[in-house]
Computed example of a mutant assay.
Amino acid sequence: MHPDYGLSRRPYKTIADVEYTTVGWVDWYNQVRLHNSLGMISPTEFDNAHYTSLSPEPQPAEQRQKT
């Protein structure tokens, strides 16, 4: 959804119309838009990469040979 989707293009008839348009814009802003200072990735992709780097997959312990 483009950031100005529905904004100022038609009159809103109900509060639900305003809420629907607002939710769509917030979704676009937080999930889709590319941000220059984040390396042209979306804020969601940036968050996912950041938190993945903080908690890497646990590595299995080395198996000890029985003697």
Rank of each mutant, 00 (worst) to 15 (best):
L54Q: 14
K13Q: 12
T44K: 04
T14M: 03
P3S: 02
Y20L: 07
D27H: 13
N30P: 10
N30V: 07
S53F: 12
Q63H: 09
Q65N: 08
R10Q: 13
T22I: 04
G6R: 06
Q31P: 03
V32L: 02
L54I: 13
Y29D: 05
H2D: 11
H50D: 03
N30K: 09
Y20D: 09
G39V: 02
V23C: 06
H35L: 10
L54R: 11
A49Q: 15
D27N: 10
Y51L: 14
L38F: 00
S55R: 14
N48F: 06
T67F: 14
G39A: 09
H50Q: 14
E19Q: 07
T21N: 12
T52S: 06
Q63I: 09
H2L: 11
Q31W: 10
R64E: 10
R10N: 07
D4F: 03
P60Q: 11
D17L: 02
S53E: 13
F46V: 02
Q63T: 06
Y29S: 03
S42F: 06
L54C: 14
P11H: 10
R9D: 04
W25P: 00
D17I: 08
I15M: 02
P43Q: 01
R64K: 10
H2F: 14
I41L: 05
F46N: 13
S8W: 04
Q31S: 14
K66G: 10
Y51T: 05
Y29I: 03
N48A: 15
P56Y: 08
N30L: 15
S37M: 15
Q63M: 09
T21S: 02
R33S: 13
